[in-house]
Design a protein around this nucleic acid. Sequence first.
DNA 1: AAAACATAGTGTCGTTTAGACACAATTCTA
DNA 2: TAGAATTGTGTCTAAACGACACTATGTTTT
Lengths: 253, 253
Amino acid sequence: MLTKKELKEYCADAYENYLGHISIDCVVFGFHEGLMKVLLLEIKSESEWYLPGGFVLKKEPIEMAANRILKERTGLDHIFLQQFHVFGDPERSKEHFDMYKDLLPEKENWFTNRFLTIGYYALVDFNDVNPAPDQFSTTCTWCDLNNVPSLKLDHALILKTALDTLRLHLNYQPIGYNLMQKEFTMPELQKLYETILDKKLDRRNFQRRILGFGILKRSEQPRKGGAHKAPYLYSFDLENYSAALTEGFKGGW
Amino acid sequence: MLTKKELKEYCADAYENYLGHISIDCVVFGFHEGLMKVLLLEIKSESEWYLPGGFVLKKEPIEMAANRILKERTGLDHIFLQQFHVFGDPERSKEHFDMYKDLLPEKENWFTNRFLTIGYYALVDFNDVNPAPDQFSTTCTWCDLNNVPSLKLDHALILKTALDTLRLHLNYQPIGYNLMQKEFTMPELQKLYETILDKKLDRRNFQRRILGFGILKRSEQPRKGGAHKAPYLYSFDLENYSAALTEGFKGGW
DNA sequence: AAAACATAGTGTCGTTTAGACACAATTCTA
DNA sequence: TAGAATTGTGTCTAAACGACACTATGTTTT
């Protein structure tokens, strides 16, 4: 939590530069050692956590705002981002109201305003990220998706909605390019799917299906040096991949 | 377009009661005589059209705002609404800027602000709607979806995005309860799907598939009196229908 | 009244897709 | 050198999908 002086400065800056009543919260998914990870911040002097977020500059497109926010938290540019929902309950930021309401009079207190938040989910390569805390946090770090600490505000709902949306998108979009390293084996990719879906898949059927999408290229050389049988290496066929991203898989109707 | 006096009153009211920088625009779909319809408003003294929309009261949940806005335009309560996207280009309301910027100084001029708009699509029973114009329009009326006039601002994009989203939802959600009358025949329902998708479907395969979803009940009595062979009447099994709405059809993975 | 026409209901066949499952190949370990 | 772990691949069966043809009922035409 900020001191009164810090808060005052922050609010003055915010009123001058950002759109009122609107915030952005990002659910950043990564994949590492067979586990789904989400990027979280730990609030100063409390052991509470929240999603990376921020505000929209007065003349900034919202996608750009989300990118800017994530660049600050991860060091990455050109992140794969997907807007998924606006959370607009008038009571959703009540915790913030209460926390800051006594420090500054309401008129100059940015945090006693109501905020709608636009939810984005991001898919990133775990290894590329350099987590950096923001002004309100001591720590920025990856947490296991199946072991998420208690979150502030409605951030638990935002996280759940993001995950549901991601699982849905799995059915008609290719996913993986933004989460995997350039080359990977079929079992590694399968593990990604299993982790997102939280269920086991059959090796052989998975391979048949994913190859059927035509978004993978197999390298000439298998990965050597590892234990056991040397697996083939795959990479995404970017042309087909992005075509599938815009057109989607199988229609239904 | 408003007169200076009207504008001044409107702006004063807006600043007092609504959240700044946020608007809501609704794409209201109806179905009538085999045609997909969308509800549009014609702007005063210009022959330009726009989507029904409005603003969010300071303490109002956003879904409630969308409902309130549509109640005013259609007379209907409890409309089926689906939030689908936020449009946040800083230039998106430039036309509005220009139209109103000379009438009032910027500080008291609501319309020279930047607005993000939250897009909702609505599915309604055509026959239940009583279209009513708003303060800025002379006419509120249904237009054929395949013959939409030129729209203001980015409303053409909003409409297109809504339609794309609706078509996507068709693949994993039941749709029809909100668009059809209580009882309907199988060919009528098929016509709805064909109209939304803008493509012909095979009668027999359509019937097999839609019955397979288990969301329809067949009446004892066929519809009599019409020309030709009397068709069976169907209605939606509400229990199964809403279960399917929340759970979705077939997974994929 | 009979024939022609329009619309509605139903079934079948062949292909494709999905799920369950078994075996062979490679590489390290014991 | 046998065994364990991991990877690659093929097959069988059932379900789903798409194309397609016939029958039934009611109106219109002659």
